[in-house]
Every structure is written in structure tokens, then in C-alpha cells.
Design a protein around this nucleic acid. Structure first.
Lengths: 235, 235
DNA sequence: ACAGGTTTTACAAAAGTTTGACAAAGATGA
DNA sequence: TCATCTTTGTCAAACTTTTGTAAAACCTGT
């Protein structure tokens, strides 16, 4: 799942640049112009990192940082500022910021520092990989651990690979060829029953009634279709 | 327990200043002038942080950093350098340095960044105290003395190293490659049964029933996973 | 040469994947 | 609707790959 970043910055042209680049990197980015808004948004507890400008209208960046530290000890904070005096830097870091960049800074450095912070912060949240839920099942797409409606289980490597392909293209028909290609890396024309066997196995794992598949549907003459939510009729 | 810092710096007057100040802060400090010495010293696995100058005689700081990352994924590294070009900075951070300071820098900033890194690195390794308990066993991670459910024993050097890697990454899957790399320092592609033998031995030591491992689980096709508390379901 | 520890070798066992035969279900056209 | 053709489901046997195990070989320092 994408890391969510909150950018607190009142200079709009800077904010835009940051947001654009962060999104480019695949992060989910939110933005506020004031510390008050930021703190309110953070209450949702849905952020992985805060990029915080020190010069803000209203409540100062320092105070915001301090409040963040009081409330969420380990939420990573990266401070941005125009002030370059060591004094400020030390003060910023001393109040618990994880990193500190002074404007102007290189965008590359900015991005890479963020990546580093997130990588390390991920270490103390053990195996929180991307995961997906459907019809009462939960599958960790990273390590293949799953809680199905029938019980816990571990997907094998190949099962996981196939499942990932299904998830990636959920709710669209995938023909046998491309499926073979993506999940097995073999020639799309390959003639085999392996695919069917694996689909059967996924059904056994995750379908309430495997003989009447709701999520792993077969489209005769075409291929298969993985439906996240079979009940929802869609546009 | 004092945090142990390794300073790798060939300019003696700088090194002295760093050492003096770090010791003043209560750290236990070691010093080498070359990368080779540093890597050798690190083998003991007894450091919490490395302060690394990029300009070294012999093997370069970059290479040292890279080697450190291969062998000890999470050992914090703070890079010092005279080069100030963003290029270098990005390169240094990209190779996994935790932080990067360009000379001249404020001693205050240096110390505070170190404090921050160490504080956070403590978070990544929450269970890495001097000793660890799991499923009725107790192992001293420093000297390898253990009280297992079957009796007292001493882990050999290699057994201990492997065990340390397992503990450091408990509850996550570690593939054979990285395992070989971190515990033995050999090429990740190495083909050997040694690893399996050692896992078998750890199982014999610590598992109630070695043929049905609860703590040292094998993840077929991937590697092994050391579970501190096997009963706890994930997430 | 010996002892403790580590690595290699060789083989057994286990886990995972593919194949092939055949049954079942859907389509097609008279 | 029936006969026929095609595609998909199922299952067990065959096969492949990975891991477990134990003994022998190998170091290294005493």
C-alpha cells in the first residue's frame, strides 16, 4: 500500500513542487497550509510521514512539531526551512524531527531522505505488507500469508504470483494466454491444465462454495475474471 | 548500556575532536583510520552506529558503506564528507546511509543527529536487549550462553551469529541469500547445506519438538522465519 | 595429533508443480 | 431437442525442486 505523506507548507509554489514530485514517486500526498489544519488531519492517524515547513502562518512549525511528538512519538517528521543557522537546525532536530533540510535543497536529496526515513520506519512495523480483503478473506500480497473464511494458510510462491496477477487486474477478464505469460512467464500459447488447477486451488481456499465461484469466475472461451466484490454491479 | 560508536576517519585532528565529544556524551567510541580495519572490527558485531568519512586511504568510504549495507542491513551509518555537491549527497544517501553531514558542520548538529539516529534505531530493534527469551528458552546474545528447555548450553560463534540475524529480523521471512550474506558474509548465491544444518541445530536446541518447528520455520522456496511467539497470529 | 567447530557430500524425505486421462459443462448447428 | 464439438473441472500419478539429516572430510589452533 502507498505511503501517505502530509505536506505542511504555506508557500504554494513550493508545496506544488513537492506534491508533484512526491506523487511522481508513488506516494499518496495530502497538503495543508497551516499547522492547525495539519494537526486536525493527523488525528485521523492515517499518515506515515509529515513534511513540515517551520515558517507557517498561525501556530509555528516548531510548535506543530512539538505537538506531533507529544501525540505520536514515532511519526516521522522532516522539517523544511529557509533558516540555515545551526542554531535553528539543532533546535529542530532536538525537538525530535527525524531530518532537517534547509531551502534551497535538491529535490533528489529531498526524495531520497524521505525514502530512507520511510524504509527505516517500516522496520518497526514488522510484516505490514500490502494486503487485500475480499469476501471475508484477507491476503498479504507481500508474504502470501492469508486469513481465509476457512482458516489461516500460506500461499505458495506460484499461488501468490497468480493471485497477484488477478488482483492487479481485478474485475477485468484476463485470457489464458496473458495469464500464463504474467504468472508463469511462459509462452501465452502453452497448452496446460496447470492454470485450471491453480484456479481450483484458489477457489478452494477463498470461495465459500468452490463449485459456485463468486470471486474467481471463469469466462468460457476467454479466460478468468477475479471479482473483488461480486455483488456490486458496476457502471 | 552505552551505545558503541565506530568512527572511521583518517584525519586525526578531526577524529580526535569527534571522539572527544562523543565520549563526552557518554558513548563508547572506537576509531579506525581505514575502511579495511573498520570492516574487520565490525565483524565483531558490537557496534550500534558507524561514523564514516568518505575520503579514506585505501578502500573508499562508498565501498565501505556498501559492504556494511550488504552485511548489516540496519546498522546505522552517518557519513561525513568535505564534498558538498548534491550529487555526492544523493549517492551517499542512496547507498543506504542514514544521514549525511558535510564538513564543516556544527558539532552540536553532529551530536544531535547521532542521538536521533540511535534513538530511532532502538525502535527498529525493540527486542535486541542483552538477552532474549522465547518459548521457554533464554539466550544471551552477547556471549551465546543459553538456557534452553532441554538444558543449558553454549552457542558456538557461528550458531550465535545466525541466531542474532534471526532475532534481529524476527517474525519476518529471511531468504537464504541474505541469510548467508549476513550470518556468514558469503556470496548470497552460495549453494550449501551448511545453513540447513545450523537451522537444524538451533531447532534441536530450542524447539520442544524439532521435527515440528514452532520458532524456526522454513518457508519453502524462500528461506526461514524466526518467530518469537508462534501462537500469535499475524497482523 | 587432537579436539572443537564448520563445511561438504550424499542421499532421503517433503513440498510444490505439471501432466494426462477422463468427466462435466457450455456452445453450435441441424 | 439431440448429437457433436470444445472448453473447463478434477484427480491422481509423475516429476522437479527444495529442504532435512547424518556422517565424513576439513580446518584451525593447541
Amino acid at each position: 500500500m502507498k505511503n501517505r505523506i502530509l505536506v505542511v507548507e504555506d508557500e504554494l509554489h513550493i508545496a506544488q513542487a513537492l506534491i508533484f514530485n512526491l506523487e511522481q514517486e508513488g506516494y499518496s500526498v495530502h497538503h495543508t497550509e497551516t499547522g492547525e489544519e495539519a494537526l486536525a488531519l493527523l488525528e485521523s492517524g492515517e499518515f506515515d510521514l509529515v513534511v513540515l515547513d517551520l515558517m507557517l502562518p498561525g501556530i509555528s512549525g516548531f510548535d506543530v512539531c512539538q505537538k506531533i511528538r507529544e501525540r505520536w512519538e514515532r511519526l516521522p517528521v522532516l522539517i523544511l526551512t529557509a533558516k540555515g543557522e545551526p542554531q535553528d537546525k539543532v533546535a529542530g532536530l532536538a525537538m525530535g524531527a527525524d531530518d532537517y533540510l534547509t531551502k534551497p535543497f535538491s529535490l533528489d536529496e529531498f526524495l531520497i531522505r524521505i525514502a530512507g526515513i520511510l524504509k527505516r520506519s517500516g522496520w518497526y512495523r514488522p510484516d505490514l505488507g500490502p494486503e487485500i480483503t475480499f469476501g471475508g478473506n484477507l491476503v498479504n500480497l507481500g508474504n502470501g500469508k492469508a486469513k481465509s473464511i476457512h482458516g489461516d494458510l500460506d500461499l505458495t510462491e506460484q499461488e501468490l504470483k497468480l493471485f497477484q496477477v488477478f488482483v492487479e487486474h481485478h474485475d477485468e477478464v484476463i485470457e489464458r494466454g496473458p495469464l500464463l505469460q504474467r504468472a508463469w512467464g511462459v509462452d501465452p500459447g502453452t497448452e496446460t491444465r496447470t492454470l485450471d488447477n491453480f484456479v481450483a486451488r484458489l477457489r478452494k481456499y477463498f470461495e465459500p462454495n468452490p463449485s459456485e465461484p463468486r470471486h474467481f469466475q471463469t469466462i468460457r472461451g476467454k479466460g478468468y475474471c477475479f471479482r473483488l466484490n461480486p455483488d456490486k454491479t458496476f457502471e
